[in-house]
């Protein structure tokens, strides 16, 4: 599988990272290089091998489904680039 400029542009959009047209060629080359290099995993016989889901064999602990935190609106908003009237503000989303 090799990456072309159209694929690189699509991946950049999926990742929500704008890429200028003059940067596209280098990006394509780099992604192609990395993905070509990881291609060697195709040599491994993984027949019948379970994919790892947890690196330490442990079952996740359960806890009571209860609210343990909250009521800190101002702290939550304190780092926002644009917060108004107790909300995060963003450009218009709905037409």
């Amino acid at each position: 599988m090799s990456i072309d400029a159209a694929t690189a542009r699509k991946v950049a959009h999926l990742a929500r990272i704008s890429v200028a047209e003059d940067e596209l060629e280098q990006l394509t080359r780099e992604l192609d290089g990395i993905l070509g290099w990881v291609e060697q995993l195709q040599q491994v016989d993984v027949e019948g091998v379970e994919p790892m889901t947890s690196v330490t064999p442990m079952s996740l602990p359960r806890r009571e489904d209860a609210v343990t935190d909250g009521g800190i609106r101002d702290k939550v908003l304190a780092n926002a680039p644009d917060a108004r009237e107790g909300f995060f503000a963003v450009p218009k989303v709905v037409e």
Binding site: A12, L14, A15, I17, L27, L41, V44, P51, M52
Partner: peptide
């Protein structure tokens, strides 16, 4: 960071998940 986020986006994208991510997790088991 941009490169890694894009590589990650690619390997998780529709049609490539099994070939890349799932296989890598199997190799991780090995």
């Amino acid at each position: 960071v941009r490169r890694r986020v894009m590589v990650g986006t690619y390997v998780l994208s529709a049609g490539y998940y099994d070939a890349y991510y799932l296989r890598a997790q199997k190799v991780r088991t090995l």
